[in-house]
Design a protein around this nucleic acid. Structure first.
Lengths: 253, 253
DNA sequence: TCATTTATGCTCATTTATGATTGTAACAGC
DNA sequence: GCTGTTACAATCATAAATGAGCATAAATGA
């Protein structure tokens, strides 16, 4: 690739993503960081972008961030611990499925360190988080957008899921009960989660302790259908004993 | 081969491939690298291409999407006029399909006034624009994310599109030529566009005048397959006459 | 036919692009 | 505010690309 082409690519990348890090560009273009810095310097002089520490940003920053206020997120600490554990279970080269929700979002954030990964998600927020990672092949399920969760659901989602098989599916939930199993308030979302469990070799459920004992409108699946559970240490004793009674694999973090 | 012929070949080669290395040209034309360099120097002086270390690149390379950062702004006026016209064609209650690209993005921005609309798109940017409109039912096609255009393409996209039938599909393009038809630089994207044309009762092509006469790598469709064209008034006379010759419906704005 | 011009190829000194290294500056977490 | 980490600019080394000069061969014209 010629210098000229490379510079165009950089500008293009910055325009499309509104930002780019030196590392990212270096890896992406297969040149050293020195070269990227030199290019950025010249491109800034040509007023084609604006440099910042660590990279560059577009001049006409059309920042489209999926506003998801972290502060409003209750039990963030627990969710991050759960997500970290979940990431440990992922191996280089895996194909994984990410459900919507704030817990799985924490996983998406932690995936950037992988260099070879296929990720499929129905969450617009997870997607937004992953869209800049060139080393991750990001796919999305089709479907109707649920504006309140910013996840895609519906028949198109299910049909899309039928096309794939993944190594691990990471699922969130609204309710988790020993007798009623996994439940969510929305019919379509429940169907989507069911399909996710079906297409994954391993279905991994993530839930902070606030979900335990809750029962919501729509049943997704029984606990037995799940291959592994990641819970935080706030989970009630009785529930843990119940899991052991079901012989269900679980991790506490 | 005469010098003149050779120079023309070089320009042609560069135009076609958007780039060429000195080595490549030397071997291809059976002349020494010195000669190629001499030619390139003169061709650059004649402003027929741009030299770079190791070779040369095309001045207005179609295959480099958004080669210049201000491309998004470049024909913004025209694009907005085109989009306004497109929106006029939409009726309350319609199901519409929005392709990726900056022109269709302008449509998305203008859709917020409708109160009953189904929109399907494969563009993450259009999606982002529409996600807050509660009165519009927004769906997305599944598929792999193309990081540089932020559009979804691939088999999952096509499969998703097979599930729907829409009243109108609004398509952008990179190249629009009387003989070569509609062309784009990416194979997968071309396939997606083709499918879009197939599932729409009415396929409407949007193109500002900079696209006319351009031919890109992958053919999407012939002009005859389109039901309506919206162009800006900068479109060349000859092209317009050509459209009339094909009996193709068009609007100039 | 022979002298002259022109195009081309070859050689080599020079320039350019690039990556690595290193000391310094900026940032982030505590 | 302190400290460790990360990013930075400056510098150097190297390999590739370049252009100038010269040699050769073909084309041109007297």
């Amino acid at each position: 690739m010629f210098e000229e082409e490379r510079k165009r690519s950089i500008v293009q990348f910055v325009e499309r993503h509104t930002r780019a890090s030196v590392q990212e560009l270096s890896q992406d273009l297969g040149v050293s960081e020195s070269t990227v810095r030199r290019d950025l310097k010249e491109l800034e002089e040509a007023r084609l972008l604006k440099r910042t520490h660590g990279g560059a940003v577009s001049l006409q920053s059309v920042n489209f961030e999926a506003a998801f206020p972290d502060k409003a997120d209750r039990f963030l600490e627990e969710k991050q611990r759960i997500a970290r554990k979940a990431v440990e279970m992922i191996q280089e080269g895996d194909a994984i499925l990410l459900d919507g929700g704030t817990t799985t979002l924490q996983i998406a954030r932690a995936l950037k360190t992988f260099s070879n990964l296929k990720v499929i998600t129905n969450s617009m927020i997870a997607l937004n988080e992953l869209k800049d990672c060139r080393n991750i092949e990001v796919s999305i399920t089709g479907g109707m957008l649920r504006p309140d969760t910013l996840a895609f659901v519906g028949p198109m989602t299910e049909r899309s899921l039928e096309m794939v098989r993944v190594d691990k599916a990471f699922l969130g939930t609204n309710g988790l009960d020993m007798h009623e199993g996994i439940t969510t308030p929305n019919m379509l979302e429940a169907a989507t989660k069911r399909k996710m469990i079906a297409v994954a070799k391993q279905a991994i459920l993530l839930a902070d302790h606030s979900k335990i004992g809750q029962v919501s409108f729509c049943k997704v699946a029984d606990l037995q259908e799940i291959d592994h559970c990641i819970l935080d240490t706030g989970a009630p004793e009785g529930f843990i004993r119940g899991l052991e009674g079901l012989d269900l694999d679980y991790t506490l973090v």
